[in-house]
Amino acid sequence: MIQSSYDSVIVRRIGAILVPLVQLFALYVLFFGQYGPGGGFVAGVMIGTSLIMDLLVFGREGKAPTAAERALSGDGIGLVVFAFVGGLCLIGGGEFLNYSDMPVPGIDGASRRYVGILLTQVGVAVDVAVAAVSIVFSLSRDDSLGVPHE
């Protein structure tokens, strides 16, 4: 189903404009999540959706599928980032996920919590994006795509 690029110049043209726009907006949502609506979950879904759109429009010839395929082996990296930030707080001498004990020199507790929120949001975004793309790869039963060959 998602073997080759979609056979319509309109769809491909619109996709070429829309995919980078969605990704840019996803980054905005991710890093603006502390000041407005949005955050890791939404940004992750948007990044995942943009990769899926790229996959459906451009097929295997595009750049995104190879990136997505490579990202699939990183399933769980987002979770590791999240838990690692929590573990950093343990190293800093506090409780798990209490960001004010994160060993970041030069800033006070509130700013450390700000940095902690930012880092964990990136972790959530990566986790959700990879999960979304991986589910699409699983759903599209295709010989040459998705599941790495053993």
């Binding site: 979770l79 700013s111 700000y114």
Partner: peptide, 25 residues
Amino acid sequence: ADTRTTNVVTAVLMDYRALDTLIET
């Protein structure tokens, strides 16, 4: 004051209730 984060929802999700969000992830 605690987290320098103006969006309270993000502060609750990612800081006060970070363990819940970790499990959700």
